[in-house]
Design a protein around this nucleic acid. Sequence first.
DNA 1: AAATCTAATGCAGTTTAGTTGCAATAACAA
DNA 2: TTGTTATTGCAACTAAACTGCATTAGATTT
Lengths: 126, 126
Amino acid sequence: MGIVRKTKSVKEILAFFSTKNEAKSAVQLIEFFKDKMNRTTVYRILDRLVEEGILHSFNGKEGLKWYAKCQGCSSEHHSDVHPHFQCTDCDKVECLPTNIALPNLNNRSIDSVDFFLTGKCATCNS
Amino acid sequence: MGIVRKTKSVKEILAFFSTKNEAKSAVQLIEFFKDKMNRTTVYRILDRLVEEGILHSFNGKEGLKWYAKCQGCSSEHHSDVHPHFQCTDCDKVECLPTNIALPNLNNRSIDSVDFFLTGKCATCNS
DNA sequence: AAATCTAATGCAGTTTAGTTGCAATAACAA
DNA sequence: TTGTTATTGCAACTAAACTGCATTAGATTT
Ligand SMILES: [Mn+2]
Ligand SMILES: [Mn+2]
Ligand SMILES: [Zn+2]
Ligand SMILES: [Zn+2]
């Protein structure tokens, strides 16, 4: 059912994502907010923000959960699908503003698409 | 340094993968071989087989590690890159024998590519 | 075939991401 | 201001994966 109450902690996390444009892992967010809220609260707020279509989540290289802002999604429809890129140097994770070309799927139908790349980001490559 | 000794357990796991053509998770393999070898042994053999270029591994939906046979890879060069598909009905995970179209990466360089799809497989769709 | 070397194994313990149950708290509407 | 209940904090729990170390068993040499 998503966010119903704009609590102090919810505002805090929303404010955080409104500034940053990169993705953050649950682990990073827990560390960042450790003095302001409980780890369980971070997990639960992230869940709700995803359900609301405000954030999207995906799995990183080591099986960690990552979160980033959605563009034009809602609780009904999650339309913001794109590749994610993690830099092996600086560890930053970016949402790539590109479409994903689907392979030939024969008689399969698709629910979710995860495209995760690693390598060196533009900054670390220069 | 990979496999140096063809132990009973190594032969067992190699034999298992030589028949099946689908991917298996570490958890599934541990369960399957629980009477024949220790869970730690399964993890370690899988690690070595990946290092050798005999298996490749990738992360599934719930952060589990999956393993499948490689085609034409070696310890030096891992060339077998393709999408993976997990059926939400029967849970089977398939290697799709297709190439992955890379998005425009600007000044980024690539180390690894992971493309993971979920949906209904051909069997469950018919 | 026996002795030797050491990679590989089993086991128990550890780490860590993520979840759960429940009592206390704080949004928010009446 | 009061009452309702969504949300939080806390502690305990779960499960995948990893580690250290003593023991075992491939492989190689004699
Ligand atoms: Mn994204
Ligand atoms: Mn594969
Ligand atoms: Zn970088
Ligand atoms: Zn299926």
